[in-house]
Design a protein around this nucleic acid. Sequence first.
DNA 1: TGGACTATTGAACGGAAGTCAGTTGTTGGG
DNA 2: CCCAACAACTGACTTCCGTTCAATAGTCCA
Lengths: 197, 197
Amino acid sequence: MKKATTRTRQTVDVRRAQLIAQGMAFFGTRPYDAVSIDDIAEAAGISKGLLYHYFPTKRDYYAAVLEAAADDLRAQTDVDPMLEPDVRMRTGLEAYLDFVKARGPAYVALMRGGIGSDPVIAGILDRVRGHFVDTIVKDLPAHPRPRALRVLLRGWVGFVEVTSLAWLESPPGTISKTQLVDTASRMLVSLLGDVVP
Amino acid sequence: MKKATTRTRQTVDVRRAQLIAQGMAFFGTRPYDAVSIDDIAEAAGISKGLLYHYFPTKRDYYAAVLEAAADDLRAQTDVDPMLEPDVRMRTGLEAYLDFVKARGPAYVALMRGGIGSDPVIAGILDRVRGHFVDTIVKDLPAHPRPRALRVLLRGWVGFVEVTSLAWLESPPGTISKTQLVDTASRMLVSLLGDVVP
DNA sequence: TGGACTATTGAACGGAAGTCAGTTGTTGGG
DNA sequence: CCCAACAACTGACTTCCGTTCAATAGTCCA
């Protein structure tokens, strides 16, 4: 057991990962400006200066934490592309909801995570939505108005996001995962039937 | 024309309204912590101390600004309850989109407005969604599982929110207001058909 | 007219973000 | 095995900004 006063040196990757994990715990629990750099540094057992060695500003640090949560979500919902489209959709939705359940705070931080319309932060969320839209569009035949289609698919992703949040924060037994998957699937089918020629 | 150095005294209501309007302009444009109390005070032509006479903290001030934007949105989308349900839905959606177009920055601030999962801020958005859910539920026959229904309706509101944001930020001609109203309506009908017995 | 009420000011405080010159583990070449 | 160069790391310092508060000055009514 090393003495706490001893300086411990880590590789860049390890330290960065530690700080990001630390950040998820903090920002998932408390609002952005109720978390101080000192808090994080203390919890991580490092000096405040070191955090600025890894992230230029607190804002950038926060963005990196959200980006990591976004990466996790994308990775978690990655589905075998060999499956049938409708199976893939259900499997993906189930994985999405599993992520929401398992990583509640990180998910909430990601979704509610804007800092008063910061473009960088908003961009992270936008890319998450765009990612899901991409995976849906890939399965579709060419569309005469792809941009319009994407706007509506983005909306469907929003439907999933908001039901997920409501589900997460609702008392147990309010609605089942299966029903959410069922309804979301049917909504997507209905949307596509309405919009795809 | 009064001299700028002269102290100008206003009634509470006028000052408060001025400061909130000021806040909408600022927070709609720049992220929360890029807006300083000094900026607002200077733009409003008052001292920094006075802002604290009206709002206990910067956070409370921000919340008041968002709350005002939320009130505006609710007021703007208020529809004559004498109309037929489906007409009411279309009219309400049109009013919603008109608000989005006309008050873009305020709408974006409201939607992207969280400050790193602040419960007070999140609550403002939640109440907006809840309000729309309420108005929909009022038209529906009693439902065996009202809480489940509300989760899904909240999701539909999310659909409208996200398509609205995407519409607002998309190049002109990407998708028409009419098509958005059409699709959102059909989505709601489809959702209700799926869920209401 | 004057006194009370309160909107308003400005200076000062405290705490947190961000900076930097110096320190100490680590590593690879002699 | 040693030492020199590199990079992770520190902590004290600066600066900026949210917040406080005692003092000031418009306004209104008696």
